[in-house]
């Protein structure tokens, strides 16, 4: 038995039809991870030590346990203590929260790269804490880490197949059902792989480009600073 083109062409639309569902789940989970990740970052920096410590523990725990088991926990276990979600919400929340721990690291690295002087400057200008964060620190911390953030969108996208374990009809679930019904797995699963490549490879190239551009931007800033200093020296 080898590749059957007719079968492949026949089942392609059925599998690819899941694309909107997959994109929807990916984006939903990504938004959760962006927002919740930021919350984790703040909580971790909190001056209230128990909160900071608990957040640290939460991040380590969620990061180092399998999202699949977390998915089962959210979908099967939480209802037994009265918290239930439909499978789509469970999927979005699980993936979103799992990757929020990664994004909080990304935010952290961005924030740590902002020079100390910026905090002092904000203080000198009498900014409130909120103003300091949203007007001074984050606008400088985020742009350099945008490529890294984009990268996690891709990682999240590639993690969606695990949702088949709770019956979400994404690509792999569709392929699996078709495979089981026809006793032919090669074509449907290959199609799933192709779909992932088709969707993720161009995005990866885009992110690469972004990364190069942001590095170049960074360098030109450094150059500008140097030139400014030289100019000052000339004047002085």
């Amino acid at each position: 038995m080898t590749w059957d083109w007719n079968f492949a062409i026949e089942v392609f639309p059925e599998i690819a039809g899941a694309i909107w569902l997959v994109i929807g789940i990916t984006l939903g989970a990504y938004i959760v991870s962006l927002v919740f990740g930021l919350a984790l970052t703040f909580a971790r920096r909190s001056s209230f030590k128990p909160l900071a410590l608990a957040t640290y523990g939460f991040i380590e725990f969620v990061r180092s346990t399998p999202p699949l088991v977390q998915l089962f926990f959210v979908f099967f276990a939480l209802p037994s203590i009265g918290i239930s979600f439909d499978k789509y919400t469970a999927g979005i929340l699980t993936l979103g929260i799992h990757y929020s721990t990664y994004l909080s690291e990304v935010y952290r690295s961005g924030i740590e790269a902002v020079p100390k002087g910026q905090w002092e400057a904000a203080k000198a200008m009498n900014f409130s804490k909120m103003q300091t964060w949203f007007k001074v620190i984050l606008p400088q911390a985020l742009p350099p880490v945008i490529p890294m953030m984009g990268n996690y969108l891709l990682v999240l996208f590639k993690e969606t197949p695990i949702l088949m374990a709770i019956g979400v009809g994404e690509f792999l679930q569709e392929a699996q059902l078709i495979g089981a019904a026809n006793f032919k797995y090669l074509e449907p699963i290959t199609i799933v792989g192709l779909l992932f490549l088709l969707l993720s490879y161009p995005s990866a190239l885009l992110i690469n480009k972004l990364e190069k551009r942001s590095k170049r931007g960074f360098r030109s800033t450094k150059k500008a600073v140097k030139e400014m200093n030289e100019f000052e020296e000339l004047k002085g």
Binding site: K158, E159, T160, P161, I162, M164, F171, L172, A175, Q176, Y185, I189, V192, G193, F196, L197, S200, Y201, A204
Partner: peptide, 9 residues
Amino acid sequence: GTSLLVQMF
């Protein structure tokens, strides 16, 4: 570029 689970399947 593809998923671990897809590769496993």
